[in-house]
């Protein structure tokens, strides 16, 4: 039989725990609601026009005869960020993946959809990281501090978009050329797209619009192929006058897996 005193102790501690938990929860909710939309405080995001990508990729497949070619944007990403390429696909880190998707109805056509880090507003990876090595930067970029990462890989499990890669082996083995401006990683840490953060920072300092490597490559490729516009658009979501801001505000852009409430800042149109 549980004594009265013991009951009080248990009940007391349970209440304490509940109060503590609820205050935490409230704080978290509050921070979620009060998202700043001040244009001068940039919140970086990206828009992917799936139609454009499909068009470009179809052309590329036709040109090369390779059913699964690596587009210029992905190559530019690899070059820019020293992302190695390995023959074993299971270990190959890809920050920018071009995936083939179709409707499940018989005879539907394939779409080519790029998948990169979605830079969620409520990033599950940052939520679960035990050391805060992964975190949401003020400008919305999800960063990984490789110096702090312990390589537990829990973030990869938590990420709903398969955006993260683990360094199973030394990246130097898979590199042919090195971009001196960015680092490489060592084996044992997790890495992913960071919107070419060095370019973003530099652009902000100079007061111009930043363009990550993939976006730059996409623009060049669009020009080369004579498209009207490029498939990838990068910019400040908070700014309603920016190109990306306008498109998002048409409400046509979709997020991936919206039901999880992660609120990615990479939007897809025509998906």
């Amino acid at each position: 039989m549980i004594s009265r005193r013991r009951f009080l102790i248990i009940a007391g501690s349970a209440t304490g725990a509940v109060l503590l938990g609820s205050s935490q929860l409230e704080k978290a909710l509050a921070s979620a609601r009060s998202e700043s939309s001040d244009p001068s405080k940039p919140l970086w995001g990206m828009i992917v026009d799936v139609d454009q990508c499909t068009e470009c990729m179809n052309q590329l497949v036709a040109e090369t005869g390779n059913p699964d070619p690596k587009p210029e944007c992905a190559l530019a990403c690899d070059r820019e960020n020293n992302v190695p390429e390995f023959r074993e696909k299971k270990w190959d880190p890809q920050w920018f993946k071009m995936l083939k998707v179709r409707s499940n109805l018989e005879g539907s056509e394939y779409l080519w959809v790029p998948l990169l880090c979605n830079h969620c507003r409520h990033a599950p990876c940052a939520q679960v990281c035990p050391t805060k090595a992964t975190f949401v930067r003020e400008d919305g970029i999800i960063m990984i501090d490789y110096h702090r990462c312990i390589g537990c890989r829990y973030c990869m499990i938590a990420c709903p978009y398969n955006a993260r890669n683990f360094n199973f082996k030394e990246p130097l083995d898979g590199l042919t050329e090195i971009n001196p401006e960015t680092d490489r990683r060592g084996h044992g840490v997790v890495e992913k797209c960071h919107f070419c953060v060095h370019r973003v920072d530099r652009a902000v300092k100079e007061g111009v619009n930043p363009t990550p490597a993939c976006v730059e490559a996409c623009q060049k490729e669009a020009e080369k192929r004579g498209f009207e516009k490029s498939a990838l658009i990068f910019g400040n979501i908070n700014d309603p006058n920016s190109e990306i801001g306008k498109i998002i505000r048409t409400s046509k852009a979709k997020q991936l897996r919206p039901s999880l409430g992660t609120e990615p800042k990479v939007y897809y149109v025509n998906l």
Binding site: A28, V128, P130
Partner: peptide, 25 residues
């Protein structure tokens, strides 16, 4: 769990930095 980490030499960072939202922490 420790020996399975990718960067064991960073492993004790878990004690330095505490992420309240991480169940792992």
């Amino acid at each position: 769990i420790f020996l399975d980490l990718g960067k064991i030499e960073h492993g004790l960072n878990t004690t330095l930095y505490f992420n309240t939202t991480s169940i792992f922490s």
